[in-house]
Design a protein around this nucleic acid. Sequence first.
DNA 1: CAACCCGATTGATAAATGTCAAGTTTCCGT
DNA 2: ACGGAAACTTGACATTTATCAATCGGGTTG
Lengths: 231, 231
Amino acid sequence: MSESYEEGVRQLPLFAEMGQAHFEALMRGAYVQNFPPRIDLITEGEAPDFLHVVVSGSVDLFSSWNGRETSLATVYPVSTFILAATIKDAPYLMSARTLEKSRIVLVPSEDVRAVFDKDNAFARAIVTELSQCYRVVVKNTKNLKLRTSLERLANYLLRQSQRTGLGEFDLTMEKRRLASFLGMTPENLSRAFKGLEPHGVTVTGSHILISDPESLTRFAKPSALIDDHST
Amino acid sequence: MSESYEEGVRQLPLFAEMGQAHFEALMRGAYVQNFPPRIDLITEGEAPDFLHVVVSGSVDLFSSWNGRETSLATVYPVSTFILAATIKDAPYLMSARTLEKSRIVLVPSEDVRAVFDKDNAFARAIVTELSQCYRVVVKNTKNLKLRTSLERLANYLLRQSQRTGLGEFDLTMEKRRLASFLGMTPENLSRAFKGLEPHGVTVTGSHILISDPESLTRFAKPSALIDDHST
DNA sequence: CAACCCGATTGATAAATGTCAAGTTTCCGT
DNA sequence: ACGGAAACTTGACATTTATCAATCGGGTTG
């Protein structure tokens, strides 16, 4: 099996500290696969056969109920998803599909659980990762329950702006998916962008210019306890 | 220190399988405290000095932003809260206050992290607990994003009804807190109860009678991937 | 017992958000 | 370059939800 991707996986915090033998055991059972865009990788409700690692491309995590669908997160390289289901051996809560051509490493869930029992460093890393994921989801819930859609958009733009370190940037996803991620309709998102114009936001296609960061910040009132996804 | 509460704590899945010596080490640094109703236990943003275990009473987890406040969860005996913050040694994301007279065990976070490094059974239990918490929050997010408030209420009532195994039961919390928990205003909750009358729901004070479970179920469309908090 | 307080309810109204139905633009593949 | 599909936008309208104000009612307390 090609070693090329293993390096990237090994450097993930989740795998970085574990014993070499255990890592190799995991990789022995794993395999890489290339997927075209818009391919369903998993469907919510299914049993978690594999832990997934995105090596390149990107993956949308979403969920459906009663004919409605919502985007819950986007996974970029290099990181894993559906760790909790794998560990608990419980059904996936989210579906996943590739957004673009993507390279995914599939690690059998059984192997993950087996190595988890043997390798303390791996167990610790899993705890750290799960805590992180948990906290991100809690922040997300607060974002949804405490803010209007306009406020959510404003804070999203500020976060993106900080990520790039610039006052202007391109949206990393389609507007329709952004809308779904922020919990609104595409139409509402269009109007929300308009609604932020008075706060110095100019939208040209997928390009965003924040000409008055102070005003936008005053409106968005970002909080580390909601918007800082690093802690 | 009184042993009376230790038994209950020891039987928690989180502590049940760990070594006796490690458990005793945890309990040595811990202490119990009795709190009156409506007392703030922790405030979001603070450093996680203690892992909290509710031994009796109940605790409301909530969060505030920009003058708004929302209830995120209620903790009943015997269980822990703010495990993720303790493990990550990161600021609390939620505030906590007692709802009634409550008995809380406070375990120093440092001790938890120290024992976590030494006791594999404990580490495993933490992973299981965190996965569980993570999945509950994800289900909550889906509930919020995919359903209207009427649908959330209907599913909440069905869940309560199943919990008691009866077609009637009493609400376990004030309606104002239920409203906040479900992501709506108290006024809206009143109207939502009215809106469920056609589906066989009768409200008398805090007593709920579900006279037509089939109709309510047809409307609520419960899903294990949202409403079953046990997996 | 009465006064009061607080939560719950109700009605009227406003704001936020979603839906539907055009258009318009952008993007892709032939 | 062209044609077509899909995304985006816009306007009109419906629905959902929040807000404000008033009232009701149960429970507590002096």
